[in-house]
Design a protein around this nucleic acid. Structure first.
Lengths: 345, 345
DNA sequence: TCAAATTTTGAAACCGATTTCATAATTTTT
DNA sequence: AAAAATTATGAAATCGGTTTCAAAATTTGA
């Protein structure tokens, strides 16, 4: 037998011969209610199995206590760490989360944004899809003054919003520099859509490093890819057939790097001896391939916590949004076998 | 300048000199409103930038058009495929999604369930955490008649709910049989918490296969693990030191299998020649390790679509929930190098 | 002890859409 | 053309908390 009737504050009020107003206040720890009554209210609420009706509440106060999150894909170590971080902070602050994935499609990202808008999230956290150019789907949020905060995949041209990112240029520089220091002289850079900051900046770093060490930069050494599994295999095989063979690879993500490496090995090319490889993200896969992959680590959980905290602080008025912020968080190169030319014992 | 005032059906009504009731009907395609008025309503709504207030709506009709999803972890290929499937079907049917991860902790799963309950989801989709024993956190849903549907990680003892799973016993049997056919005579099975159906059933399949081929079963050949990265390395090294060495490994997931393989190789053990390995899940990692991993594939997206469709059908009254269903969907063994003892050609 | 200050409480309006029931407008029947 | 049937619209109640404003109860001060 299912109980179908919901318990409301009116039920509690009736039972205690007090007004619903007082019950509401009691339930919300409003200071203007005596300990005794609050205590009694809590007890009766408990006994009756009361649960607050979020809709009534949301309708009256004009906010939802809900944060929206749009990410490109859920199944990466990085993204799910970020999410864990966001969830932690959001939970502690009493915020709910609506999460959706754009699956790297700008079109789906637009749909997601619209859904979030209709759901009236109090704030939005976004990491852009691969091919998002036009950002007008966030205009409704801007117009309404709903804060939108971007992380990792951002669009810095955007006038008034906060970005939380790593220093991709520096990371790109370090990765490339490392390869050079390992003796590489002809380094390919495999990357994604160059309109996306993360890829554009890493490329910049790559170029800077080449210049700093007096190596020439060739347009043809930069391979722009969709970064999906299929192109990874193709690209890997393609590289294996190059003549002359490059001696270094700086790849925009670990999965792609791992697949390339596999493809190269199948063609009898030795890593790192013939080609040294550096990936990006410190995904689990970087640790299980043979040889283990040198990569750039950046702290997902921490980033998520920071993003969420920042957004919530803003929502609670602690921090005014006056100016655009760009917050840069730490990243580091993790050196493993795939790039070590002269193993130091 | 942000516009702060929300447009309501009253604004539309005023503008057209009609009643809010008619506007509401017009917006909802209620039959009792003439094409002409509906048309006008739609136009004005558009012009004014009206967006329906979900809370008012939810408050009045007593449902949310929202589905809750609780999964153990977001960052696996399987889970994110399932989610994509769920999202597709839910979107098409006009349902929103609230997604949360239990991070394999029963405690967090309870918290998630409570949040979902407070959010008044119309239905709940769950894949259980690693160590969830007690299912009482779903009681509120059962009591209220809110449908809960389980997939993959289920608890079949549960009286009245639907389960959508693969035939883990069969998959376990096939994996083990394959190893036996490749000449393995001493096969270890590495698995997770045996109270969880997926692991218990695969173990059963493993035992059945041994029996069918006249091989002895030893308790000590079953290694129960937390299945995290750290234990994977430890277990791998442990196995490498076994004496005598087993000649086959059937591992409960690809990540763990990949790490084990790596650990074995580091100790100079050849795969598949010394030890043949079969994983589970067909995660991307299974394709990039060396040698590629034999594994069990099961269709996440399809499973997600099925789960969502089933739930929504039920919610819309198409399908009565009268009896418990168990729906079994197809899975298959994908043979790759990690288990091929006698490469054909 | 009585007035002033402070703390608690309640009545009623409100948030915005939905829906019932009645009425007005239109169409069909005879 | 009048009556009957059908269709379209509106008034008002409702969903369940929150909040303003005023009043009641209690405490403090002199």
């Amino acid at each position: 037998m299912k109980d179908t009737r919901e318990v409301t504050i009116y039920d509690i009020a009736r039972q205690l011969h007090i007004s619903p107003a007082t019950v509401s206040r009691g339930l919300n720890n409003h200071p203007a209610v005596s300990k005794k009554t609050r205590q009694k209210i809590l007890e009766v609420a408990q006994a009756l199995g009361y649960r607050s009706n979020t809709f009534a509440s949301n309708l009256r106060r004009q906010h939802t206590n809900t944060l929206g999150v749009i990410v490109p894909k859920l199944n990466s170590h990085f993204v799910s760490s970020v999410l864990a971080g966001i969830e932690k902070v959001a939970n502690e602050a009493g915020y709910n989360l609506i999460i959706s994935q754009s699956l790297e499609s700008a079109q789906k990202e637009v749909a997601n944004a619209n859904t979030m808008f209709k759901s009236r999230v109090d704030g939005l956290i976004v990491s852009l899809a691969f091919d998002t150019q036009d950002l007008s789907h966030f205009n409704p949020f801007f117009k309404k003054g709903i804060p939108v905060i971007f992380f990792d995949r951002v669009e810095q041209s955007l006038p008034s919003s906060t970005h939380i990112i790593i220093d991709n240029e520096k990371a790109g520089y370090q990765a490339t520099e490392h390869l050079i220091q390992q003796g590489c002289r002809h380094i390919l850079h495999i990357t994604g859509n160059l309109t996306r900051n993360v890829y554009a900046d890493r490329l910049k770093g790559y170029q800077e490093a080449l210049k700093a060490y007096g190596l020439p930069f060739h347009e043809t050494d930069v391979i722009v890819s969709m970064l999906d599994e299929k192109s990874a295999w193709e690209t890997g095989r393609q590289i294996a057939n190059m003549h002359p063979l490059p001696d270094g690879l700086f790849v925009a993500n670990d999965t792609f790097a791992a697949i390339c490496m596999q493809a190269l090995k199948e063609k009898g090319i030795r890593v790192p001896d013939d080609i040294a490889i550096v990936g990006f993200n410190d995904d689990l896969v970087s640790r299980v391939v043979e040889p283990p992959l040198t990569t750039v680590h950046y702290p997902g959980q921490e980033m998520g916590e920071l993003v969420a905290r920042h957004l919530i602080n803003h929502l609670q008025g602690t921090v005014p949004l006056t100016h655009t912020h760009t917050i840069i968080i730490h990243s580091e190169l993790i050196v493993r076998q795939s790039s070590l030319r002269n193993p130091q014992r």
